[in-house]
Design a protein around this nucleic acid. Structure first.
Lengths: 173, 173
DNA sequence: TATTGTTATACTCTATAACTATA
DNA sequence: TATAGTTATAGAGTATAACAATA
């Protein structure tokens, strides 16, 4: 906070006259320019992702499911008989971090851990009936509200193209 | 971890015979199916975003800049004479969290805080010469490595289309 | 009274090492 | 010896309240 004070202060002072309220000094109160930032794929990707997650949470709020929890339920439904490590790895969740995540779902009786009879070290994770019911309701909310809104904004063709490009990046980068 | 044990255990046992090594029980060792997950825009967006940030960090590693730090430098360069609150707000960073972020950049002498002569409460944030130099080098690395790789994967047309769709989502959702 | 920068704090995510029980 | 689940822990990132200086 002390570096270059005097040196740069001159540059700034010449750029910004010393009054503000009556006559704005040309740079004040105007919107900031994103400039090259809006061309940065990472920046736009992050902003869009935050918006999408936010919208997802709103749409599925009655069921109190996060995007991550929803993805676990979807994966369990599609892949019965798998253990914690397999589920976690597929979702890119580290095994230690998946423990608390599963604890949350299990305490709400949406899924259950079963000791495998083959390998007594591993826990097979299964959807409960309640888990299946919640997943079904979540899918409906996501389709009717979340995805519907995205189709409204992008249209089905662009939405599909977007999905394809994101998959390409995730796969090839 | 105790819920529904016996009830679901039956279902699982019938689905998965009790041996593993010699004859796999049909579900084992195969890749998990993503199913509808790969159709979830939020999921694909998150995976792609993580990959892009990872790649950005690798490409710009010699300069030790995170995507967030790079975005601050870009914004400072494009918008001289702005205070902390304006920069932070534009980037979606909360003011309290921007303090440590700026401390980091300032301790590396990439930027400096100047007390405004108009309003002695606010700190004008300016790029130092070193900050400008690092930014210039970062832009070159990003263009030559990061963006180049993305163009390799997507092609310029798709890359532009992707950027446009992401901006639409960030703006309209 | 309101705003800027700041501190303190807390909560979520993510990441690594190490333990236990099984293999 | 190696693996599955777990614990503990540490580090980012993000969120809110409150304070000092200034308006």
């Amino acid at each position: 906070m002390t570096v270059l004070k005097s040196a740069v202060a001159n540059a700034v002072k010449t750029a910004r006259p010393a009054r503000k309220e009556p006559l704005e000094s040309a740079v004040e109160n105007t919107e900031l320019q994103l400039g090259e930032l809006s061309e940065q794929l990472g920046y736009s990707l992050k902003r869009a992702q935050l918006k999408i997650f936010e919208n997802f949470l709103r749409c599925v709020a009655p069921l109190q499911l996060t995007p991550a929890q929803f993805s676990v339920l979807l994966l369990l439904d599609k892949n019965p008989g798998r253990n914690q490590t397999e589920i976690a790895n597929t979702l890119g969740i580290l095994r230690p971090n998946f423990v608390a995540m599963l604890d949350g779902l299990e305490s709400r009786e949406l899924c259950a851990r079963l000791r495998s009879t083959n390998d007594r070290r591993s826990h097979i994770v299964v959807l409960t009936d309640k888990g299946r019911a919640v997943l079904a309701r979540a899918k409906k909310l996501v389709a009717a509200k979340h995805e519907a809104r995205l189709n409204e904004i992008l249209g089905p063709a662009k939405r599909a193209a977007l999905l394809d490009m994101l998959a390409t990046i995730a796969r090839e980068l």
